[in-house]
C-alpha cells in the first residue's frame, strides 16, 4: 500500500516535471520565433541592398533575391565615378574628426561634471541633458542661420560643428567616470600631476571601454547623417556619401542599382569599425546603464 502510494507520488512528480518542461520549451520556441522574425526584418533590407547591387536595371524591381544575371558593372561604375571617391573621403574626414572631437570633449566635460564640485554643476549637467529632448529637425534652422552668418555653408566645418560635442556622449562619459575611484586621481595629484595630466594619464585609460563605445556611436551617427549635410552643402564636391548617393536619382528615374551599390560599399567602414570594437560597445552600453 505504502509502496504504491510512493509510486503514485513519484509518477505525479514526474508528470508535473515533464509538463513544466513542455511549457518551458514552448515559451522558448515562441521567444526564438519572435527573435527570428525580428532578425529577418532587420536583415532583409541589407540582403536586398546587396542583391540589387548585383542586378541590371531591368531586374531591379524583381523581388527575387538571387539575380538572374549577376553583374559587377554597378560596382565598376560607382568606383570609377570620381564623385563617389570624393564623397567617401568627405565622409571619412568628417566622421573621423567628429569622433575624435567627441571622444575628447565629451569625456573632458563628463569628467569635470563627475569629479569636480563647483556651484551650478547640477544645473550645467541638466542643461546639457535637456538638449537631448530637442529634435534635430528643430535645430537645423538655427544651425543653418549660424552657418550662413559665419560663412560656414558648404564647408567641412559647417557640416561638423553641430556634432563636435554631444549631450549623450557627455552623459555616457560622466556615468563611466563615476566608476573611477577618487583615490586614483588623488594618488596622481599627490604624485605631482596637474589636473589635465590626471585626466589624460589616469582617468582616460580607465574608461577605455566607454571611449570605444562612444567612438562607435559617434562614427556611425556621422557616417549615416543625411539631413544636416544635405542642407548645409551646395556643391557636389562637399557632399557626404549618404547625400551623394541620392544624386543617382535623376528626374526621369531612380537608379536603384547604383544607389544600392554605393550603400553597400559605404557599409564596409562601419562594419569594420563595429566588428573591431563590438565587445567594447556592448560593455559600454551595459555599464552606462542604458539597456538596448
Amino acid at each position: 500500500m505504502a509502496f504504491s502510494e510512493t509510486l503514485d507520488t513519484g509518477r505525479n512528480a514526474s508528470a508535473l516535471r515533464s509538463a513544466t518542461r513542455r511549457k518551458r520549451s514552448q515559451a522558448q520556441l515562441i521567444r526564438w520565433l519572435l527573435l527570428f522574425a525580428g532578425g529577418i526584418a532587420m536583415v532583409m533590407p541589407i540582403i536586398y541592398m546587396l542583391s540589387t547591387s548585383f542586378k541590371y536595371p531591368f531586374e531591379v524591381y524583381n523581388l527575387n533575391l538571387i539575380p538572374e544575371e549577376p553583374t559587377l558593372e554597378n560596382y565598376t561604375y560607382v568606383l570609377e565615378d570620381g564623385r563617389f571617391f570624393s564623397w567617401f573621403t568627405n565622409s571619412v574626414v568628417i566622421a573621423t574628426i567628429t569622433t575624435i572631437c567627441n571622444v575628447l570633449f565629451d569625456s573632458l566635460v563628463g569628467y569635470v561634471l563627475c569629479k569636480y564640485t563647483f556651484p551650478g554643476r547640477y544645473i550645467v549637467f541638466i542643461a546639457i541633458l535637456s538638449t537631448l529632448m530637442i529634435p534635430t529637425e528643430m535645430l537645423v534652422i538655427p544651425w543653418y542661420l549660424m552657418s550662413s552668418t559665419f560663412g560656414w555653408l558648404d564647408t567641412y566645418w559647417g557640416i561638423m560643428f553641430p556634432g563636435l560635442m554631444t549631450a549623450f556622449g557627455v552623459f555616457l562619459m560622466k556615468q563611466f567616470f563615476e566608476t573611477v575611484p577618487d583615490d586614483f586621481l588623488e594618488a596622481a595629484r599627490i604624485d605631482g600631476l596637474n589636473e589635465l595630466q590626471i585626466w589624460w594619464t589616469v582617468a582616460m585609460p580607465l574608461v577605455r571601454p566607454a571611449l570605444a563605445a562612444l567612438a562607435i556611436f559617434v562614427f556611425l551617427g556621422n557616417w549615416t547623417a543625411f539631413i544636416w549635410p544635405l542642407i548645409v552643402t551646395n556643391s557636389q564636391e562637399m557632399y557626404t556619401l549618404p547625400v551623394g548617393l541620392t544624386t543617382f536619382s535623376v528626374e526621369a528615374q531612380v537608379e536603384w542599382e547604383l544607389i544600392m551599390t554605393g550603400a553597400a560599399i559605404s557599409t564596409i567602414p562601419t562594419l569594420i569599425v563595429f566588428l573591431v570594437f563590438q565587445r567594447y560597445i556592448i560593455r559600454g552600453v551595459v555599464m552606462a546603464g542604458l539597456k538596448g
Binding site: 575611484p181 583615490d183 586614483f184 588623488e186 594618488a187 596622481a188 595629484r189 599627490i190 604624485d191 605631482g192 600631476l193 589616469v202 585609460p205 580607465l206 577605455r208
Partner: peptide, 29 residues
C-alpha cells in the same frame, strides 16, 4: 598643493593603476 608638500600616501584600495605594469606604477611618482 599636495605635490609641493613632499609627502606620499598609500590608500585603502591601493590606488595602483590597472592599466600600468608594476614598474610603471612604482615609477609613476
Amino acid at each position: 598643493e599636495p605635490k609641493e608638500r613632499n609627502i606620499a600616501m598609500v590608500f585603502q584600495n591601493y590606488a595602483i593603476y590597472p592599466h600600468m605594469s608594476v614598474r610603471k606604477n612604482i615609477g609613476f611618482g
